[in-house]
Each structure stands twice: as structure tokens, then as C-alpha cells.
């Protein structure tokens, strides 16, 4: 099957239709449920990142989502035309800290990196591009 490609205006409202597209893609290709959480989480974290970091002209900015699968893996490519921002450059949060020292920053990208097998950032043609790959356990 061909990859799924959808786009949306870079705003909080983009999350619902993009998430619906992800769930349809998963159901249509009968992909394993246990691998889906990582993609749902990545989608939310990156839409919210774009909305927070690319806020200035958000109404004129776009998010592109591409999903593709083969028997070994699922690949999600996430692009936006907001200001350059590399979430993989964020410091890894110290997950050993208790309640007093803990801050919330960086946990989203940390979770995505832990749950995916590959996370790559590139800036090209005025777009941020994140490529996420997760291998399927039963492949």
C-alpha cells in the first residue's frame, strides 16, 4: 500500500484529525496494537512542540504527516515549516530525581526516543523534518 500523507494547519486543532488519520492507518493495515502507543505519543508531543515553539505565525504554518509500513517496521515522518527547532538536541532529563527536584521539561521527546528504535532530525528546504522508526516485534 502507498504511504499515508496528510497535512494540517500548525495549531492545537491539528491534533484530532491527525490522530484520527493515524488510527485509521493502524486499523486499515492491521498493525499490532502494542506498537501504536509510541506513535500516538510521538504525534501528540510533536504537534504540541510545533504549536509551542512555532507560535509566532502559527496560522500560516503547516504540519505534514507521512506514515508508511512494511512487514519489519512502521515509519512516521513529521514535518513543519516553523522556525528551526531540533527536539533531539534537548538535554536528556534526569529521571532519577524525586518530587522536589523534578521539572517536566524534555520528558516528551525523552519518551519518544525511548519508545522508538530510530529518531532523526533534519532541517531542509525551510522545514523541520523528524523521521521516527519503530520495528515490529513479531517481524
Amino acid at each position: 500500500m502507498n504511504p499515508l500523507r496528510v497535512s494540517a494547519t500548525a495549531a492545537v486543532e491539528a491534533l484530532d484529525p491527525l490522530q484520527a488519520a493515524l488510527l485509521d492507518f493502524w486499523a486499515e493495515r492491521q498493525l499490532p496494537d502494542q506498537a501504536r502507543y509510541a506513535f500516538e505519543l510521538a504525534l501528540e508531543e510533536f504537534v504540541m512542540n510545533v504549536v509551542m515553539h512555532g507560535q509566532n505565525a502559527a496560522a500560516t504554518k503547516t504540519i505534514w504527516l507521512e506514515l508508511d509500513d512494511n512487514p519489519e517496521q512502521v515509519c512516521m515522518v513529521f514535518e513543519d515549516d516553523c522556525a528551526a527547532f531540533d527536539p533531539t538536541s534537548l538535554d536528556t532529563p534526569d529521571t532519577s530525581l524525586g518530587v522536589d527536584e523534578r521539572s517536566i521539561g524534555g520528558l516528551g521527546i525523552h519518551l519518544v526516543r525511548e519508545m522508538m528504535d530510530q529518531v532523526e532530525y533534519a532541517r531542509a528546504d525551510g522545514r523541520n523534518r523528524l523521521t521516527l522508526i519503530k520495528r515490529l516485534a513479531n517481524a
Binding site: 502494542q34 502507543y37 532529563p93 532519577s96 523534578r102 520528558l107 519518551l111 525511548e114
Partner: peptide, 14 residues
Amino acid sequence: EVQEVFDLTGFGKV
């Protein structure tokens, strides 16, 4: 799945 999120972020210490 929720346990995994708590484990990966060390939220069991929070």
C-alpha cells in the same frame, strides 16, 4: 502501556 511511561520517565520516584 501506562506503567511503561512511568518507568521510562522515572515517575515512580515522583
